[in-house]
Design a protein around this nucleic acid. Structure first.
Length: 176
DNA sequence: CGAGTTTGACCTGCGC
DNA sequence: GCGCAGGTCAAACTCG
């Protein structure tokens, strides 16, 4: 960790909608963006790349489902979106080993991006943290990892730098 | 056998 | 209203 910058919002509802953390070392470059997701509508035009629209988090999208034609979906999803944090990582591998255990629950092709987006959920009991992993089509060396929510448990298998990063996230994350 | 992955179907919101 | 895109579910499958 040679170069470490943090730009984080004050913990206030009037805080700027995004912040950045940039980490660099000899083998990786990570750019971290935190967005308060509640009610944000930042881009008026459609993103040209599948990974560039992570700052758009309509509050109600895909939420509130209780029962459907399948008759199986009875979960009561919260209507409040958790904050999301996007890491932009230059890496040859899609999956950042952040020390937590994740279970993949979906993969989708993204418009204007030849790489699919993968959806993961933390497998720790009671931990509802999700993440999305996507490679940029215009620079396939860059992987966007979007975290949604805060882990409420210790890291399962601590790895060097990421424990630091995630610790910072929890320190600075505004609570809902 | 349990945990994790794959993948098609389904649901919802949004733009036209 | 319709189609598209994003997000999620869950059965089937794979792997250790």
């Amino acid at each position: 960790m040679e170069n470490y910058q943090i730009f984080l919002p004050s913990i206030s509802t009037a805080a700027p909608s995004s912040s950045q953390l940039i980490m660099k070392n000899s083998h990786a470059c990570i750019e971290f963006q935190a967005n308060k997701s509640i009610g944000l509508k930042l881009n008026s035009d459609k993103a040209t790349d599948g990974g560039s629209n992570f700052s758009n988090f309509p509050e109600s999208k895909g939420l509130g489902r209780e029962e459907t034609s399948r008759g199986k979906l009875t979960r009561d999803r919260k209507k409040v979106r958790k904050p999301r944090y996007t890491f932009q990582t230059r890496s040859q591998v899609d999956i950042l080993d952040d020390g937590y255990r994740w279970r993949k629950y979906g993969q989708k092709a993204v418009k204007n991006n030849r790489f699919p987006r993968s959806y993961y959920r933390c497998t720790y009991k009671g931990c509802n943290v999700k993440k999305q992993v996507q490679r940029l089509s215009k620079d396939e060396g860059i992987v966007l990892t979007t975290y949604e929510g805060i882990h409420s448990h210790p890291i399962d298998k601590p790895t060097d730098n990421f424990e630091h990063i995630l610790g910072q996230m929890q320190l600075y994350t505004p609570l809902n």
